[in-house]
């Protein structure tokens, strides 16, 4: 059943557009995470003083701590944004295409 169904799905132009759209979204999201993380790592490697500076003059909190915790929160939030969109919008779209293609 599968082999035949795969051919039918693939020949639906909507499927091709859908896969391209979803993959583009995945790649953009991945690049965001990689940029945030390697940006942080490169700051550590090349500009420690930037991360060491105090946020409030005279305080102890350095810029590095909220930035680091920020990367953690950013990671979590981005993951949920992706999963929410994939589980609702993309899944509904995929289902509609499957139904249309295998009729």
């Amino acid at each position: 059943m599968s082999v035949e169904a795969w051919g039918q799905i693939r020949s639906n132009p909507k499927f091709q557009t859908f896969v391209k759209k979803r993959n583009r979204y995945s790649i953009i999201m991945s690049i965001l995470v990689i940029f945030a993380y390697f940006g942080f790592i490169l700051l550590i490697a090349f500009d420690k003083a930037f991360l060491a500076q105090q946020i409030v003059p005279g305080g102890v909190m350095s810029l590095g701590i909220p930035l680091g915790v920020g990367v953690i929160l950013f990671t979590i939030v981005l993951t949920w944004i992706y999963v929410r969109r994939a589980n609702t919008e993309f899944d509904a779209e995929a289902e509609a295409i499957l139904e249309e293609s295998t009729k």
């Binding site: 995470v33 550590i44 680091g68 990671t75």
Partner: peptide, 15 residues
Amino acid sequence: IFSIGWLVGWPVLTF
């Protein structure tokens, strides 16, 4: 630094 490194693999794995 290590904590963040250990975490950022997850979204990439997800996406």
